[in-house]
Design a protein around this nucleic acid. Sequence first.
DNA 1: GCGATCAGCT
DNA 2: CACAGCTGATCGC
Length: 701
Amino acid sequence: MSRFGGRLREYPALSIDRFDRDNLRARAYFLSHCHKDHMKGLRASALKRRLEGSLKVKLYCSPVTKELLLTNWKYKFWENHIVALEVETPTQISLVDETSGEKEDIEVTLLPAGHCPGSVMFLFQGENGTVLYTGDFRLAKGEAARMELLHSGTRVKDIQSVYLDTTFCDPKFYHIPSREECLNGILELVRSWTSLSRYHVVWLNCKAAYGYEYLFINLSEELGIKVHVNKLDMFRNMPEILCHVTTDRHTQIHACRHPRDDDCFRGNRLPCGMTCQNGTPLRIISIKPSTMWFGERIKKTNVIVRTGESTYRACFSFHSSFSEIKDFLRHICPVNVYPNVLPVGGTEDKVMELLQPLCRSYRRNQEPRYKPLGTLKRVHKRDLSDTDEDDLFDTELTSARPKISKQQREESGPSETTQPENAEGNVKESTDSYKESNDDDDDDDDDEEDKEDTEKNTAQVLPQESDATSTANCNGVPGDQQEPKADVPRWDTFFKCDRLDESSENEDNFPSSAGAGGSQSLFSDSDGVSDSTHISSQNSSQSTHISEQGSQGWGSQGWDSQMDTVLITSQERNAAEFSCFSRTGSRMIPVPHEAAKESQADNSSWKAPGQNRSGASDVICDLKSKDLEKEAEAGTAHVQEVLVETPDASRAPDLELKRDSQSSSDFEIPLTPDAELPQPDKLYCLYKKLAAGESIVRKPS
DNA sequence: GCGATCAGCT
DNA sequence: CACAGCTGATCGC
């Protein structure tokens, strides 16, 4: 929840997302999105009185936010004081002090934030520098780099301060599955249940006012079932949402609310009161989309976890993950960063400790140190593992910064020993190169972070014993929980790595939910797929099943449908997306500002950046065929898709979608299709050759 | 009666 | 747990 006080240090005459106390004196107001914790004081009588006596004071927000706000009669008094600004259209605003007549001009640009319908970030440019207030946001890795208005020419703008959504700025939220992964998990669960009969209905237990529309729309589009909601007049001017929600209770997907909706559900009643249809009782399951549990979990899980006989929770986030936050900030590279939110159980100091290394105010204080061969490691790294979904956007060796040409990067390459003081975008580049050049230095600025990442990588990779092709674990850091077998030759016996970190980009390749302390292993239990609260009604530890008591069980037809319910793990998706990318070029890569412009026309900038359904179906198709091929070739057991009939009376699909430890889940590396587990003697030879500098050519066996 | 704040709840 | 709320109790105006 936002604890931002409302004012920027640089532009104290503005108030953003807070409307009480000192903010009552602001010369202009800004609302980033329509969530209550960003609207404090917005309907207070003090502010109402201020508006009545002023012609000048305005509230600036996106067209969608204005629409949503004015749907609520409590905010009607704002009607003549709201100025809807089009997204990605820089606008000059005159800030006049009505008592002194003092005037100040500022330019504001709204940027899509991907948090909920109408949500935006505010980019202010004025005489006190350029400042970005993010509000709440979810932007995938690389999306900041594609926002034209964050750049001038080929460089990122010189941004003084970022007021940042730090909701999940905690290593335990290092990776949150993408919107699409989560959506697909939910989609397949809903599909599997609702297809059993017309009396099988799903209740989406959504808490927040806005933010799930993306989910509703996609479920409705994919399944042809509208979503029941309490009210829809707020969407009356947003046809793209409107046509997927309904107030007709006779539908199989519900997102309706009731003050005691959990009690309703326990009584097999939907919040809207529906309990049966044509005299036949409804079969209701609930799905609770949320994010916290995903960060709290100590074992690998899928994006859907069954929590009870007919209850599920699904991973769903409208805030950026820790790695997304870091990517965002690293790209902007502001002088200062200020957290808008304290993560649960976190402190300001802790958050600043994590974020400041990505800012200029911090880096400037570090003595430059010359380190040769900095870029070589990057090349090294790229060869090792290229599984991160976001690497899709990296067409060059450096991370997603398309605004900067390769030539420019080379100019600020490894031989650079000082940082430009007047820095715009190149500071970013030079500091990155610099960072990489220093990564075997014990005093390195990023040491702590890198160490943490290295440990994660190790913990992630070591259990993959068969993963001889992955040398990402060459760091030589012994895994605490996963010591390799004594008789198996070890990479670090041959190659001393001095804890070579893979630095800024590789850190994102093997995300972990383990906290910075790293005391818990994700892999303490190799088949520990389930959450501790998971209730499984079947014994197989490696199966997915959808069960329905008695005659409603799955026949061979059910098997086919079951194939659809296999969750797409991030790495598999990456591979699949990559194939889409290769085939169709950049069409598949959504560009936020294009999405926003598109939505300007139809007044629906609720769209999350990065959303592209046509792409999704391609992905699924690709994935299926890829999976089948993979299994056919590698002869891997198809255990994760085994359908197990539940013998007991469980009435709900156990769509936890378990997989065996080698091919599963949201954190693991997929098997190379024709990979084999090298025997110790063979491994010995390979390492020996590599150590001697010989090339290793795989001979077809 | 209304708003602000807080505890409790999901 | 609570991302983002809601409800109810209490207190002050």
